[in-house]
Simulated assay, not measured.
Amino acid sequence: MIDILTAAPSRVTQLNPVAKLLAIVVLTVPLVLTLDAVSAGVALAIELALFPFAGLGWRQFWRRTWIVWLLAPLTGVTIALYGQASGLIYAEWFVVRISEGSLTLALATMLRVLAIALPSVVLFAAVDPTDLADGLAQVLRLPARFVLGGLAGLRMVGLFVDDWRALELARRSRGVADRGRIRRFVGMAFALLVLSIRRGTKLAVAMEARGFGAPGPRTWARESRVGPAEWLLVLLGAVIAAVAVGAAVATGSWNFILGPS
């Protein structure tokens, strides 16, 4: 654990993506099973203290996570206005009812969203899809056909933006993109769908011709390894989850959402 906290920022970004995935799982599953402000708040506080060691600069950190900071309070506001009312009622109008219970639930929900989403975004900000596919196939032993198909599809996502711009420029050059934004959007979306299907078909044929769907064990160009640093990252996620759950149980705020109501 000390090795991870004192390592250079680039060291964390170079860890095996499978270890990052496992760390997020062991960290977030306990937070998903409860809805209380203590466990989520404790986990979020520890995560914020560790984010500077994750290998992201502050500018990149805010650029990657601003949507999470924006949506989490909006989620809390929605729960505060329309959540289950209990305790003292502070305000009531039509379907809006702000109560002591709804405010508590809103705070817990907002903190839980931040505690779950932020580490996921930070740890996977610099993950290469090919490294992730290598880890899924070699470390987790997922079917190679499934992993390579997913990797190929993920690589094609980046072409959607270029295709959309090319379609927009082509329609404008023909003078059919000046009016009717909704109609233009629907037409371009359909054209992009057709183009994606054609490209996907060609890609599938090309991969089949190169033996990607052949039976038997595969060989891999790059070996995916899980070493002590990766296991320390998983252990760190488990420690954060254990501390958060322990704090919630000790304060009596643990609220197991799958338990009897």
Rank of each mutant, 00 (worst) to 15 (best):
M1K: 03
A7L: 05
P9K: 03
R11W: 06
L21W: 00
L22P: 01
I24E: 11
V25M: 15
V26P: 06
V29A: 11
V29E: 13
P30G: 02
V32H: 09
L33Y: 06
T34V: 01
L35R: 05
L35N: 12
D36Y: 08
A37S: 06
S39T: 07
G41F: 11
V42D: 10
V42Y: 05
I46M: 07
A49T: 08
P52K: 02
P52C: 02
L56A: 10
L56G: 07
F61V: 06
F61W: 05
F61L: 00
W69Q: 09
L71S: 09
A72L: 00
P73Y: 10
T75A: 14
G76T: 01
T78K: 11
L81S: 08
Y82E: 13
Q84A: 08
Y90R: 08
V95N: 14
I98L: 10
E100M: 00
T104R: 06
M110N: 07
M110S: 02
L118K: 04
A126M: 08
V127M: 00
V127S: 06
P129I: 03
T130P: 00
A133Q: 06
G135C: 07
L136A: 10
A137K: 05
V139Q: 14
L140C: 04
L140K: 01
L140Q: 07
L142I: 04
G149Y: 06
R155S: 00
M156Q: 06
F160D: 10
V161D: 15
V161W: 13
D162T: 01
D162H: 03
D162N: 01
W164C: 04
W164A: 09
W164E: 13
A166I: 04
R171M: 11
R171C: 11
R172P: 03
R174S: 13
V176G: 09
R179G: 11
R179A: 15
R181F: 14
R184F: 14
F185M: 12
V186H: 14
M188H: 05
F190K: 13
L192Y: 03
L193Y: 11
L195V: 04
I197C: 07
R198A: 14
T201W: 15
V205P: 01
V205N: 13
A206Q: 13
M207W: 03
E208P: 08
A209P: 05
A209T: 12
F212P: 00
P217T: 14
R222Y: 13
S224F: 12
S224P: 01
E230F: 01
V234D: 09
L235H: 05
L235R: 03
A238W: 09
V239C: 00
G246D: 14
A247L: 03
A248I: 08
F256T: 07
P260K: 10
S261K: 14
